[in-house]
C-alpha cells in the first residue's frame, strides 16, 4: 500500500494517487487469491475450522434478527393491505421481500459486523505481532493458510446462512399471520412461494456469494496489511466493517438492476 509521495505535490493529487494505489493493491490481492485457491496444498482443516467460526459467530444473532425481521415486517405491512382487504396476500408479499432482499442483506450486514471485524482484528493482530512473518520464514505460505481459507469460508457460508435467515424470517412471518388469520402452515407455504421464481432464489444465492466474498476479501486485506501496532488492530477491524457494508449496499443496487434487466 501507499504510493510514493513526492514533496510539494498538492494534497488532492496525493489523495488520488493513494486511492488508485490502494485499488491496484486490492486487485493484486484478489488475483493472488484466485491464483492460490486452485494450487495445492489445500488447507482443508483450517477451511472447515473457519466455516465453523463463521457460522458459530453469527448464528445466534442471525436467528434473532431474521425472526424479528419477518415478524415485524408482517406486522407493519398488515394495516396497508387490510385497507384494500388484501391481507391474504401477506405471505406472498413477505416471502418476496425476505427472499429477494431482506435475507441476503440482513445476513451480509450481520456477518460484516461479526465475522468481518473478527477476521480483520485477528489477522491485524497476527501481523503486528510478527506471526505472519514467522509463518513466512518457516516456509509456510501465510496467504494460503490465513487468507484463502477465510475468504473461502465466508464465500461458502454466507449463502447457507442466507437460506437459514430466509427460513427463520418466514417462520417469524408465519407466526404473525397464523395468530391473526389462523392460516395453516401448508396454506402459508403455498401462498408464500406462489410468486417466487428460480430467478429470485438464484439471484439471492449469487448475492450472498458476492457479499461473502466481499466480506472475506475486505477483512483479510485490512488485517493482512495492518500497520501502526495495536492501534492498527482496532483500525483494521473498524475499516473492515465500514468498507464491507458500503460495498454490500453498492453490490445490492447493481445486482438488483441486473436481475430486473434479466426478468
Amino acid at each position: 500500500m501507499g504510493s510514493a509521495e513526492q514533496p510539494g505535490k498538492p494534497v488532492i493529487s496525493k489523495g488520488v494517487d493513494r486511492f488508485f494505489s490502494d485499488v491496484h493493491e486490492i486487485f493484486r490481492f484478489i488475483s493472488r487469491f484466485f491464483k492460490e485457491v486452485f494450487l495445492p496444498p489445500f488447507e482443508l482443516r483450517e477451511f472447515i475450522r473457519q466455516c465453523f467460526y463463521v457460522g458459530n459467530k453469527s448464528l445466534m444473532l442471525i436467528s434473532l434478527t431474521g425472526f424479528i425481521t419477518g415478524l415485524v415486517f408482517t406486522k407493519q405491512s398488515r394495516p396497508s393491505l387490510a385497507e384494500f382487504g388484501a391481507t391474504s396476500w401477506l405471505p406472498s408479499l413477505i416471502s418476496i421481500a425476505i427472499i429477494r432482499a431482506l435475507a441476503p442483506l440482513v445476513t451480509a450486514l450481520i456477518c460484516a459486523g461479526k465475522v468481518g471485524s473478527s477476521i480483520g482484528a485477528e489477522l491485524a493482530s497476527m501481523k503486528v505481532t510478527e506471526q505472519i512473518d514467522a509463518m513466512e520464514v518457516s516456509a509456510i505460505n501465510p496467504f494460503k493458510y490465513l487468507v484463502v481459507t477465510r475468504i473461502m469460508a465466508t464465500t461458502i457460508c454466507l449463502p447457507l446462512l442466507m437460506c437459514y435467515t430466509g427460513i427463520i424470517g418466514l417462520a417469524g412471518a408465519f407466526l404473525d399471520v397464523h395468530l391473526n388469520e389462523q392460516t395453516s402452515v401448508q396454506t402459508f407455504i403455498q401462498n408464500a412461494f406462489t410468486n417466487i421464481s428460480f430467478l429470485d432464489l438464484g439471484a439471492s444465492l449469487v448475492k450472498a456469494l458476492v457479499y461473502g466474498f466481499t466480506i472475506g476479501v475486505v477483512s483479510c486485506y485490512q488485517g493482512f496489511h495492518a500497520t501502526q501496532g495495536t492501534q492498527g488492530v482496532g483500525k483494521a477491524a473498524n475499516v473492515s466493517v465500514v468498507i464491507s457494508m458500503f460495498l454490500i449496499f453498492i453490490e445490492e443496487v447493481l445486482i438488483v438492476q441486473l436481475v430486473n434487466a434479466i426478468r
Binding site: M126, T129, E130, Q131, D133, V137, S138
Partner: peptide
C-alpha cells in the same frame, strides 16, 4: 521457500502463534 528451510529467524518477541 527452500532457502528459508535452512534459515531460522527468531523474532524479538517470539512471534508464537
Amino acid at each position: 521457500r527452500d532457502l528459508r528451510l535452512k534459515l531460522g529467524f527468531c523474532f524479538q518477541h517470539g512471534a508464537l502463534y
